[in-house]
């Protein structure tokens, strides 16, 4: 590790320890690190948006390439900002309505296809006398039981109550899997920082 890398990694190690200090209790070191992240992120994103959107989609096309039709979306973009004026705020509704209209028109069929039809198609598959078939049968049964659980127009008693209870267990199994994976994800963040600190201190003091 070069001296420059050692200095930068030293700063990163210090900020990591500042964040970890919150585990004991809130303190000025934690607040400093937290606000530094927020400030750097805001500054970085502002400049990034300027260079990747405003320059690419407004400045270059209109002023360098003479594509005058780019003026129309630019005006609509400016109209969004009129929300800050009480007199002109109504103009922003036109731009927002256009944006929502186009967004809904594009998204609705795609959402229906991907979230509803494809998922239904994958759930209701032809019965087969194999492990795969048994798996499909179990899936259909558990999905149906879960739907029973969310049916509130009938009291959950007797056979119906039993089936809805299976639905609860199905949900719990799902939440359990989610929880387990979340723990793995959170631990991964901690582990990555510990590995980083270990390697930094080894580079600093030797093994």
């Amino acid at each position: 590790m070069t001296t420059v890398e050692l200095l930068w990694n030293g700063l990163a190690a210090f900020l990591t320890l500042c964040i970890f200090s919150f585990l004991y209790k809130d303190n000025p070191f934690y607040k400093f690190a937290e606000q530094l992240v927020a400030g750097v992120a805001l500054g970085y994103w502002t400049m990034l948006l300027y260079h990747t959107t405003f320059t690419d989609k407004v400045l270059i096309p209109i002023f360098q390439q003479g594509k005058l039709h780019y003026i129309l979306p630019t005006i609509m973009g400016i109209m969004m900002w009129t929300r800050f004026s009480k007199k002109l705020a109504y103009l922003s509704r036109i731009a927002i309505a256009f944006y929502i209209g186009v967004g809904t028109g594009v998204a609705l069929p795609l959402y229906m296809y991907n979230y509803v039809f494809r998922q239904l198609q994958a759930t209701v598959v032809p019965l087969q006398f194999s492990w795969l078939g048994l798996n499909s049968l179990l899936m259909v049964s558990f999905v149906t039981c879960t739907l029973f659980y969310f049916f509130f127009s009938k009291e959950h008693k007797g056979t119906f109550g039993g089936l809805s209870k299976v639905g609860i267990y199905t949900l719990m199994a799902g939440f359990g899997a989610s929880f387990g994976l979340t723990v793995m994800g959170r631990v991964a963040l901690l582990v990555q920082r510990i590995i980083f600190l270990r390697e930094y201190f080894i580079a600093l003091f030797g093994s």
């Binding site: 494809r118 998922q119 994958a122 994976l181 979340t182 994800g185």
Partner: peptide, 17 residues
Amino acid sequence: VTGVMAADYYPYLQSGQ
């Protein structure tokens, strides 16, 4: 995907998406 998201994406695997 991250561990937190993983459980949500298995249905898309099963549907072939």
